[in-house]
């Protein structure tokens, strides 16, 4: 009897935190502790999350593998499954199968300076990698985190952003597109507008970019203009997905399935895939 790849595992929601406007972070533990013990993942991987009797959706893991025993998902309330998740309480049970996808390169970029450029909820998958890099701090050079949102209320992980900024050889720069309440003292402008404010050693820096497609598009153009090579720009691809297993066909681009061969690609790889990114 082989394992049925479509069967979700039961996970208990042990904690719910209001992360930002319309965003909650859910801490999950496997009901079967044996599965929890064997569960391993890489930053950038995702799971298919089942809200029973509602449906299933792919959601990236935001916790870091450095933290054992639980998973965290930060979820914006935007659709059928995510709104059902937002109505859940601590102690409730949901389904999870995964981890899926290739995840971010980690050992491959050790020794480099790391530049993170995130937009909105796009910080969620990067947070997993950021925390793993800080957990193995001596493997990396300078870590710069540029993060932008439409308005201040949408900024996620604010405590962590403060903490990361205080760590040695790291910097955190924030921006918002606009501030209707007028209580924002920081930068105003799209996240790409922060790039001129930091010193970058082009040869030794790898950029990780994640956010809404339009933000990714313009940030990559900025990075290319600065002289980044396509291999040193790592991003994640968003596509409609159903199975997460490279079978259902929705996320197919070229010979790749974004769910299985991605969602993490270098800009160089994306260019070679052909279809619009």
């Amino acid at each position: 009897m082989i394992e049925n790849i479509y069967v979700p595992h039961l996970m208990t929601i042990t904690k719910i935190r209001d992360e930002a406007e319309n965003v909650k972070t859910f801490t999950l533990e496997f009901k079967d502790s044996q599965i929890g013990k064997n569960f391993d993942y890489k930053p950038g991987q995702f799971g298919e999350v089942t809200l029973f009797n509602i449906g299933e959706a792919p959601i990236s893991i935001t916790s870091s593998p450095a933290n054992k025993g639980y998973l965290e998902l930060s979820v914006a309330n935007v659709g059928k499954v995510t709104s059902a998740l937002h109505q859940k309480n601590e102690g409730d049970v949901i389904g999870f199968r995964g981890p899926y996808g290739n995840g971010f390169p980690f050992e491959e970029v050790s020794g480099k300076n790391i530049l993170f450029v995130a937009g909105g909820i796009g910080l969620a998958p990067l947070r997993s990698l950021i925390n793993q890099m800080f957990a193995e701090r001596n493997k990396f050079g300078k870590i710069s985190i540029l993060y932008g949102c439409r308005i201040p209320n949408l900024l996620c992980f604010q405590n962590e952003l403060d903490n990361w900024a205080k760590l040695e050889n790291s910097e955190v720069l924030l921006t918002v597109d606009a501030c209707p309440e007028n209580d924002w003292k920081g930068n105003i402008g799209v996240v790409g507008s922060l790039l001129p404010n930091i010193d970058i050693d082009l040869e030794n820096t790898v950029a990780f970019v994640c956010g809404p497609p339009v933000m990714i598009h313009f940030v990559i153009l900025d990075l290319l203009k600065m002289g980044f090579s396509g291999d040193n720009i790592i991003t994640t691809m968003e596509r409609r997905m159903e199975c997460g297993l490279g079978k259902c066909g929705h996320c197919n681009i070229g010979e790749k399935y974004v769910c299985k061969d991605g969602p993490v690609f270098s800009y160089q790889q994306l260019k070679e895939l052909g279809e619009n990114i």
Partner: peptide, 23 residues
């Protein structure tokens, strides 16, 4: 052609069936 959709069909208040359909 092998593409499919996955869809949960509710059966009463506390049960559902997960289906897959050709897409």
């Amino acid at each position: 052609c092998h593409c499919f959709n996955i869809e949960d069909v509710q059966c009463g208040e506390k049960a559902s069936i997960r289906m897959r359909y050709w897409d």
